[in-house]
C-alpha cells in the first residue's frame, strides 16, 4: 500500500511537472501575448513596461521564469494574476474547489444510483415493457443539453413559480457547506439534478447493455445449471461483474468533471467553480491562473485515477497482485 501511494505520488509529480512545462511553453510561444503589456495596461510607456518586466521576472531567460512561477505558485503561494493586478491566484482556486467538488460529488452519487438501479432493472426486465420504457428515459437523459436544461430549470424555479411552488429554492450561486449545510444542499439540488441527468442517461444504457452481454457468459450458464434463480444470477453475478466496467467509466467521467468539465452547469447556475475559473483564465490569457487551474485539474485526475485503481483492485481480484 505504501509503495502504491509513493508510486502514485511520484507519477503525480511527474505529470504536474510535464504539464506545467507544456502549458508554460505554449503560452510563451503563442504570438501576441506579451504579458508585460497586459499587466501594465493599455498605452503604457516603455519605462513602465521595463519595470513590470523586472518585477514579474519577465526579462529573465525562460527557464528562470518557469522556476520563478512555480516557486510563487507552490512554495510562496503568492502568485498573482497578470490581468487583475494584485489578485492572488490561490484564494480564487481554494474558493472554487469546494464548489466544484460539491457539485460533482452530489451529481455523481445521483447518476450512479440512477444508472445502476435503472440499468439493472432494464437488463432484468428485457421481455417486458419496462426495458423499453427505461430505454426511453435513458435516451431523453442523453439528449437533453445541460445548458438548455439548466436554463429551463432556472426559468421554472427562479421565475414565475418562485413566488409559490419553489419559494424554498435559494437564488443562484453556491453556498459553502461550512456557512449553512441546508443552504448548501438547497442551492446545489437543482445543479446536481441537471448535471446528473446526462450522465444517468449514459450510465443506464451502458450498464444495461453490459449486463445483457454478461448474461451470455459461460459462468451464467453454470449458475443456471446449479439451480440459481434468475434474480440471483442478475444481481450477484452479471451486475456484480458489470461494476468492473462501471468503475473504469466512472473514473474517467468523474476526473474530467472535477477537473473543470462541469463548466456549463457552473455557468448556468452561477456557481464559481473551477470550470468557470479556468474558462475566465483562458479568455484573458492569464497565465498564472491558467497554470493554477491546470495544475489543480492534473493533480485531481491523477488522484482520481489512483482511487479508481484501488477500487478496481477491490472489485476485481484478477487485477490484485500478490
Amino acid at each position: 500500500m505504501t509503495r502504491f501511494i509513493l508510486k502514485r505520488l511520484a507519477a503525480a509529480v511527474f505529470v504536474l511537472v510535464s504539464i506545467s512545462i507544456l502549458v508554460f511553453l505554449i503560452f510563451f510561444a503563442t504570438p501576441g501575448v506579451d504579458p508585460a503589456a497586459r499587466i501594465a495596461g493599455r498605452n503604457a510607456d516603455q519605462l513602465t513596461l521595463q519595470q513590470v518586466r523586472a518585477t514579474f521576472d519577465l526579462d529573465k531567460p525562460i527557464h528562470i521564469r518557469y522556476v520563478s512561477m512555480m516557486k510563487h505558485l507552490f512554495i510562496d503561494r503568492d502568485l498573482t494574476s497578470y490581468v487583475n493586478r494584485g489578485a492572488e491566484v490561490w484564494p480564487q482556486l481554494t474558493q472554487a474547489i469546494p464548489a466544484t467538488l460539491s457539485l460533482v460529488f452530489g451529481a455523481a452519487l445521483i447518476w450512479l444510483v440512477l444508472g445502476l438501479a435503472l440499468g439493472i432493472t432494464a437488463a432484468g426486465a428485457r421481455k417486458s415493457w419496462i426495458d423499453p420504457a427505461i430505454g426511453i428515459i435513458g435516451i431523453v437523459g442523453v439528449s437533453l443539453p445541460v445548458y438548455w436544461l439548466g436554463e429551463v430549470v432556472n426559468l421554472i424555479t427562479q421565475g414565475r413559480l418562485h413566488a409559490t411552488l419553489f419559494r424554498w429554492v435559494p437564488p443562484l450561486g453556491y453556498v459553502p457547506f461550512t456557512q449553512s449545510p441546508s443552504g448548501w444542499f438547497l442551492a446545489l439540488l437543482f445543479p446536481w439534478l441537471t448535471l446528473s441527468i446526462l450522465y444517468a442517461g449514459i450510465y443506464i444504457r451502458v450498464i444495461r447493455s453490459e449486463i445483457v452481454g454478461l448474461m451470455q457468459e459461460d459462468y451464467i450458464k453454470t449458475e443456471r445449471a446449479k439451480g440459481a434463480g434468475e434474480k440471483r444470477i442478475l444481481i450477484k453475478h452479471a451486475s456484480r461483474m458489470s461494476l468492473i466496467t462501471v468503475v473504469s467509466l466512472f473514473g474517467l467521467d468523474f476526473g474530467a468533471l472535477v477537473g473543470g468539465s462541469a463548466l456549463l452547469t457552473e455557468v448556468v447556475f452561477g456557481i464559481q467553480g473551477v470550470g468557470r475559473l479556468t474558462f475566465t483564465a483562458l479568455q484573458n490569457f492569464d497565465l498564472p491562473l491558467i497554470m493554477a487551474t491546470v495544475m489543480y485539474a492534473a493533480f485531481f485526475i491523477v488522484i482520481a485515477n489512483a482511487i479508481v485503481d484501488l477500487v478496481y483492485a477491490w472489485i476485481d481480484p484478477r487485477v490484485r497482485r500478490g
Partner: peptide, 11 residues
Amino acid sequence: FQDPMTALTPV
C-alpha cells in the same frame, strides 16, 4: 461444462 476457464464467476 467444457471450458473451466470461463465457467466460474471471476470475482
